[in-house]
Design a protein around this nucleic acid. Structure first.
Length: 194
DNA sequence: TGCCCGATTAACT
DNA sequence: GTTAATCGGGCAA
């Protein structure tokens, strides 16, 4: 079951507000679909963000209208996808870090070259490879291009933690996930017991 | 132009 | 736990 397609207005709001709401939504590319279970927040006043140095050629999309896809190459090998958030010019986006495959798993397994469903979309590079997202989709509008995102069941057990794979501003708790999901890129730290 | 490094992943010991 | 793969972006020279 999927709800209405998320539109530009949905993503035009503060990134901190959109982040937890994007969890549980369904990303669809072609005949494959997956429920988003993990996202990471990036914004301009953030040394770890590609938008930190302003609208360079690569980061230009982040400063464009909300709801567009920002796809970049990571380590010269992988593709990673973000959805631009906030009003145009802010340079904020949400990195899609992990999802639970729900449709078109055969195609995902073919593109990934692995069988285990937990290894199909559990990481930003894996998610893009599984769904067939690549640089040609950079700048496309979600819902109007090859990638659609539909509303899903609201997630009530959202967990927050530090971001992954960055070397600056590592203390900002801007990683959001569905508690206990077996499809996370990495588990969230267990609550500290005093 | 050259250099360094990265929002990662898989395959090692 | 560590490390190679692989290449474009950003900045210094």
């Amino acid at each position: 079951m999927t709800g209405a397609l998320l539109d530009q207005a949905f993503f035009s709001r503060p990134v901190a507000e959109v982040a937890p709401e994007l969890l549980g939504c369904v990303i669809e590319v072609g005949r494959s679909a997956a429920v988003i279970v993990e996202v990471e927040r990036y914004q301009q006043d953030d040394p770890a963000s590609h938008s930190f140095r302003g609208p360079t050629p690569r980061a230009a999309v982040m400063f464009g209208p909300a709801g567009r896809l920002y796809v970049y190459r990571s380590y010269g090998i992988h593709w990673c996808a973000n959805v631009v958030c906030e009003p145009e010019g802010h340079g904020a986006a949400l990195l899609l870090r992990a999802a639970e495959p729900v449709r078109g798993l055969a195609a995902m397994r073919r593109r990934r070259g692995v069988e285990d469903a937990r290894l199909l979309c559990s990481g930003p590079g894996r998610l893009c490879q599984a769904l067939g997202i690549d640089g040609s989709m950079n700048g496309s509008l979600v819902g109007a291009g090859p990638v659609r995102i539909a509303a899903g069941d609201a997630v009530h057990d959202v967990v927050v933690g530090s971001r992954i794979g960055i070397s600056v501003a590592v203390d900002r708790p801007w990683r959001f996930g569905v508690a206990g999901s077996p499809h996370l890129s990495r588990p969230f730290p267990s609550p500290v017991v005093a």
